[in-house]
Amino acid sequence: MELNRGQPGLAAADLTPCKWQPSNVEEDGMIRVQNLTKNFGPKTAVNNVTFSVERGEVLGFLGPNGAGKSTTMRMVTGFIPPTAGGVQIGEFNMLEQPIDAKKLLGYLPENAPLYGDMTVYGFLGFAAEMRGLRGEEKKHAVHRVVEMCFLEGVLHQSIDTLSKGYRHRTCFAQAILHDPPILIMDEPTDGLDPNQKHEVRSLIRRMGEQKAIVFSTHILEEVEAACSRAIIIDRGQIVANGTPAELKQRSELSGTIIVRVAGVPAAALQQKLAQISGVGRAVALTSTGTAAAARVFPQRRLTDGELARAIHQTLAREGWTIEELHTDEGRLDEVFRDITLPDTRKEVAS
């Protein structure tokens, strides 16, 4: 795969040319991030990042540790000012009208920081008051998120005594308390058990229908489970931007076909497959038992099922029993590794 590291815009643009055009970014979207750059001393943490998120979209922010995910989110939420570039939240500019912009945001910072000396109820009350909710409104809002995040059992417990899962949910509750149109979450499922992860993901997906959501993660299955779009960021730059399916297509294995046939030597299978027109090459896979397996790389990208049909017909003519035949969609983790591995290590790996 060829990547143009010097020009992140190009790498992103060639992936989804119709969706990703920075010139259109200005026009619409709840979150518009334009050429965002952040330097810490001589170090560039975030370099010229541009993206936008619409209502009804869930954007996954992917990247290795230290890639600049958290720094980007902190700039979007107005916690730290950017060195260059702008952030537009709804109709407000984060630098010029920070208060109005922040009113539209719900934010779950990394590691879910909380005031440990407060009770869950006291903390949520505080968050509600900060959001300008008083009296009945406040009570109603707190009650709503307590139910949504299953916090009834620990409502009057001091936050210091809570388990990590409850702490996370309390901070999450704070973020959605005022029902903000925009939600920004830094690793919302970090440190949760599998059930809680599942819960949070489905909550994100559900809320994503009406809100604009950005969340960062380094768990790739999460992206497939909850995101409508994903951005991969590496060393401060956006290196890929597209739907999970589009990203997966960047995988070398995407579009390849796996064939498993019973009672045939692997070499024979491989030879047979290589003769089919449209097949670039066939590689024998380690097989189990009596079945032989091979991965077929097409010569060029074919329309769905075309090659699989040809393989099936050829093998059926031989009278072989096909145990498995499927098209590989590609794997996100492979794409991720491929894009974000430092160049030197990539050479060693290949």
Partner: peptide, 9 residues
Amino acid sequence: ELLLTMPLT
């Protein structure tokens, strides 16, 4: 981070 991303100066 929590405090200063809330709508207050």
